[in-house]
């Protein structure tokens, strides 16, 4: 009973408040951009890849945005493919992903507007500590993959068209090997997330391509694996092909009128602002002893 009365009260208060606001906006000049804190927060949906969520980055930086703009951000962490699809269908207001070609295509088709660079993290190749394909020492990913293929050592692929999977396919293209899951024999397209693919690699003594953030967060439960290519720290990764840039793209409100276009644009501006960049640069130092992302 109490809660009901309370909610009735708050609805009443909100109605009165907006009525007052409407009146005042007639009489006085428009209020400033920052809304009054008493207004209920606006919901916004962010479709992003699992890496930003699973590493804990979003949990660390989002409260700042929500406070500043009186917003509530609903995070849907999925593969890049599905994240872009969510934007395409108008089920998300803004996307934060890392698959440059697909992102450009998304913008070119008019589903998103004004892509901006946010940050990079890097990919590494991890594999069995015994390194059966003798890859260790290789600085570049493509020749390393070649060696794995020549040794017919097990390789676990995400196989889900995610950003990581797209990157892996690009690297195979450079290495001039075309492995196919069903026929190659040592190449396994797992078709699941990074965590599951790492688990598979750990169980089956396989190499795999992973983003460093997921690796650092999960390496304690993967006793059979270690870093083979990419170095122990981001700065030691000398292969430009292993760099992984993230972009933020607000969904085009012209395609879907119910999109929260203003808030989405504010989010894009906020996440590329110097203050947020500072936070991104510091994220992970405390927990893993190194930064997981480098702001652009």
């Amino acid at each position: 009973m109490n809660t009901q009365i309370f909610s009735l009260k708050s609805i009443l208060a909100t109605t009165l408040f907006s009525a007052a606001l409407a009146l005042s906006s007639c009489a006085a000049p428009a209020p400033t951009a920052a809304p009054t804190p008493a207004a209920p927060p606006a919901n916004m949906t962010l479709a992003t890849t699992t890496s930003t969520n699973d590493t804990g980055l979003l949990a660390a930086i989002l409260p700042d945005f929500e406070r500043q703009y009186n917003a509530k951000v609903k995070v849907i962490a999925v593969g890049t493919g599905q994240a872009l699809k969510l934007g395409e269908d108008g089920n998300a207001d803004v996307v934060l992903v890392h698959a440059r070609a697909q992102e450009d295509d998304f913008v070119a088709k008019g589903f998103g507007i004004n892509r901006r660079d946010v940050m990079v993290n890097d990919f590494i190749i991890v594999g069995p500590t015994a390194d059966p394909a003798k890859v260790k020492g290789e600085a570049l990913a493509a020749p390393a993959l070649r060696k794995i293929a020549e040794a017919k050592a097990n390789f676990a692929s995400r196989g889900d068209n995610s950003g990581t999977n797209t990157k892996e396919k690009d690297l195979w293209k450079i290495s001039a090997v075309t492995p196919i899951s069903s026929t190659t024999g040592w190449y396994y397209a797992v078709g699941q997330g990074m965590g599951e693919t790492l688990t598979f690699a750990n169980e089956k003594a396989a190499y795999t391509l992973t983003d460093r953030g997921t690796w650092l967060a999960q390496k304690n439960r993967l006793p059979n694996l270690s870093i083979i290519v990419g170095g122990e720290k981001v700065v030691q990764n000398t292969d430009p092909a292993l760099q992984n840039p993230y972009g933020v793209i607000p969904v085009n409100p012209a395609k879907h009128p119910n999109i929260k276009a203003n808030l989405a644009e504010q989010f894009a501006v906020w996440i590329t602002s110097p203050a947020t960049k500072q936070k991104i640069a510091l994220f992970g130092v405390e927990e893993f002893g190194q930064a997981l992302f480098r702001p652009l």
């Binding site: 999925v78 593969g79 493919g81 395409e88 196919i180 078709g191």
Partner: peptide
């Protein structure tokens, strides 16, 4: 089957796990 099979293409991918994968990729 997703847990113990791993949804590996050409090895352990069955209809249900394939549906999950395609949905995750947005290939509805």
């Amino acid at each position: 089957v997703m847990l113990v099979g791993g949804n590996i293409e050409g090895f352990t991918r069955v209809l249900t796990t394939a549906i999950v994968l395609e949905t995750r990729q947005g290939k509805f």
